[in-house]
């Protein structure tokens, strides 16, 4: 199918919109951008059309891409769903479990599609891992390690406010929490330790999250929001009864330069190969699904479950103890029950 006739509304003009907007345009969509701030600059950089209100945007477009700060995902996605739109939501799907669960039910009830943008599922090294595990190459998984490091996002203040962003666990580590669940299955226990240091102007934050999967496999997810010069790096190491796989973004670089004019260091987003851009692959898969294509590799239930695991980790920080998770209530069954009542 072609997207040339499709109109997509991009809500928000922050960091990730600079990634999403050019990809949506490349996909052939007409993109309308609404944001409280920065929409004109964003459109001037990449293209598209600025609209002045969310209502105006919803009146024009067929689909909505929510790329606003975490704490507003729920309200924007809800309005878009209620306006009859299929929706892409930047991760996390919502800030709280209740909001995420409500969005799952709302999408189900209204028969709309809602896709959480867990882009790491589109990074080829994680796709390889998932395929290998699914194919049985590694056998029964025993122990998994995931790590993600980059600069503390100081560009806008809301990241530093745990109430708004959920801190490093909800914002950054939710990627690997989702991958751990994607690869090793449902999680039954979560514990976490976290630390904030540095200064108000130059903060750093770290956390370690331990997951126990229903299968008995155990995962460690590590996150660093470090000093501004820290490059973005990722690692994983996964061992099962039949084999192991590990990956380090530093070790697998295919372009090494030591130039007099050094490129800017420090990273909020990983380096990607432009010929196989995961952000593009993600938006292509979502928009193709909107047009009747196959269901994407990540569902709204996956998004809500990632939020639930991240919030369990945040609860563990508060209580100082591991959090046992009651098994996930199947979203559609719960929706069914609500309709019956």
């Amino acid at each position: 199918m072609t997207l040339s006739s499709l109109k997509i509304g991009l809500v928000g003009a922050g960091g990730i919109s600079n990634s999403h907007l050019p990809h949506l345009l490349t996909l052939g969509a007409d993109v309308y951008v609404f944001s409280d701030a920065g929409a004109a600059d964003l459109v001037a950089r990449h293209g598209g059309t600025v609209v002045d209100t969310l209502d105006e945007l919803l009146a024009i477009v067929d689909y909505v891409d929510v790329a606003t700060p975490t704490f507003t995902h729920y309200a924007v996605a809800k309005r878009a769903l209620e306006a009859g739109k299929d929706v892409i939501s930047e991760k996390p799907l919502a800030r709280t479990d209740e909001e995420a669960a409500e969005l799952v039910q709302l999408a189900e009830r209204l028969g709309r599609r809602l896709y959480p943008a867990h882009v790491v599922r589109f990074f080829p090294e994680y796709v390889r891992l998932h395929e290998a595990v699914q194919s049985g190459l590694l056998g029964d998984l025993a122990v998994l390690r995931f790590s993600r490091s980059g600069a503390f996002p100081t560009r806008t203040p809301w990241f530093a406010d745990r109430a708004l962003s959920g801190g490093i666990i909800m914002d950054q580590m939710i990627h690997d929490i989702d991958i751990a669940r994607w690869v090793a299955g449902e999680v039954v226990r979560v514990s976490a330790v976290s630390n904030r240091a540095g200064t108000a102007a130059a903060p750093v934050e770290a956390a370690h999250v331990l997951l126990t999967h229903a299968s008995g496999a155990i995962s460690h997810v590590a996150g660093i929001w470090g000093p501004a010069h820290l490059p973005f790096t990722t690692e994983y190491s996964v061992t099962g009864t039949l084999g192991s796989l590990e990956h380090s973004s530093v070790a697998e670089r295919n372009y090494t330069a030591h130039l007099l004019e050094a490129a800017e260091q420090g990273g909020l987003l990983p380096d990607v190969d432009p010929a196989e851009n995961p952000y593009f692959a993600e938006l292509r898969e979502f928009t193709e699904a909107f047009g009747g294509g196959p269901e994407p590799r990540v569902s709204v239930v996956d998004g809500a479950e990632a939020v639930r695991l991240a919030n369990a980790a945040l609860l563990s920080l508060e209580t100082g103890q591991p959090v046992e998770l009651v098994s996930r209530v199947d979203a559609s069954a719960e929706a069914e029950e609500k309709r019956a009542l």
Binding site: V143, R145, V193, N195, A197, A206, H208, I218, H220
Partner: peptide
Amino acid sequence: AGLVSISYDNGVIAAIDCS
């Protein structure tokens, strides 16, 4: 297989894979 997280009195958090 074992994964261990430790909090230290200087605020440092550590995690060890001893598997």
